[in-house]
């Protein structure tokens, strides 16, 4: 970890010194010009927004799938479903990206226009125009990508709930759903949070799938249906081949920022889990 951080810093510093704009504030990325100017804000924003949206879409579905497999499905069906989920988790991201561009982008055009027309007064769905190459589409693909990982880990966690805790709830007269609410979900909470963070990490670091979707614009806008958007990883993939020395350093600096964001997110998740540690059941 430290070696990676040192490498990133050493490579990034010369570019940062040559930067004529503000690395945190500038909304352009022209490090290869004679007067290099680049800023991370738009990229970091796109990364965070698309990943968080993906998480919001994926976690409820993943937890539902995991609960279905662990507590509702008949044993044979559960085995098959579990296997399918594990397989989906192993599909390379470029496949999801290609599927997104060829299948999803044309498919969402209609619904987006519908939402834009009737719900356009909500800033989230507003903007001058809407299109498939947008933050929303990238988020949908990311959500589909991280769903199997979150579901697979959550299922394992839910299966770990001691039988005696479920029986305790049953003996109090709990229905199946109430058993899940009183015994299974609270017990599995730390595991689901960890699983979500793994998913979030994968979403933020995802490169090819989002590079294919994002139109590589530079701006900060919450209009998630508009044909705009970019992310740190997509920008690196798009720009690295043609970058000069300063351009490379700039891209590496953006990688450093991604690295820091990932660390911060993981630390936050650890704090959330640790806050209720004495209630985790680990002490019993």
């Amino acid at each position: 970890m430290a070696a990676i951080a040192v490498f990133l810093i050493v490579e990034a510093v010369p570019a940062l010194q040559a930067n004529q704009g503000s690395f945190l504030g500038t909304l352009t990325w022209t490090p290869n010009n004679t007067e290099p100017s680049f800023g991370i804000a738009a990229l970091a924003f796109g990364t965070l927004l698309s990943s968080l949206l993906a998480l919001v879409m994926a976690v409820p579905v993943a937890v539902g799938v995991a609960l279905f497999i662990s507590h509702y499905a008949p044993r044979r069906l559960a085995g098959v479903l579990g296997y399918v989920i594990d397989l989906l988790a192993a599909v390379p991201s470029v496949i999801y990206g290609l599927w997104g561009v060829i299948f999803l982008v044309p498919l969402v055009q209609g619904p987006y226009e519908f939402i834009h027309e009737y719900l356009g007064f909500i800033p989230l769905f507003g903007g001058d125009s809407v299109g498939g190459h947008s933050i929303m589409t990238a988020s949908i693909i990311l959500a589909i990508m991280i769903l199997p990982i979150i579901a697979a880990i959550s299922r394992e966690v839910f299966l770990q709930v001691p039988r005696m805790h479920e029986e305790a709830a049953l003996a109090l007269g709990a229905t199946r759903w109430e058993v899940i609410k009183t015994a299974v979900l609270p017990f599995g909470r730390p595991g689901v949070i960890s699983a979500s963070m793994l998913g979030l990490g994968r979403a933020m670091g995802e490169t090819i799938a989002v590079a294919l979707i994002f139109p590589a614009t530079f701006g900060i806008s919450f209009q998630i249906l508009a044909p705009e958007g970019n992310s740190i990883a997509a920008n690196i993939a798009n720009g690295f081949a043609e970058a000069g020395p300063i351009g490379r350093g700039a891209l590496i600096a953006s990688g450093l920022v991604l690295f820091i964001i990932t660390l911060l997110v993981n630390t936050a998740a650890r704090l959330i889990v640790a806050r209720r540690k004495e209630f985790s059941g680990a002490a019993a």
Partner: peptide
């Protein structure tokens, strides 16, 4: 099961709940 309560061989309070919440668990249902 709401009319006929049960106590198990190994003590099994809900590990994620406080003492108060454990006693109240059945009431909440």
């Amino acid at each position: 099961r709401r009319m006929i309560g049960m106590v198990f061989q190994r003590p099994n309070p809900f590990p994620t709940m406080s003492i108060y919440e454990n006693v109240a668990a059945g009431l909440k249902l």
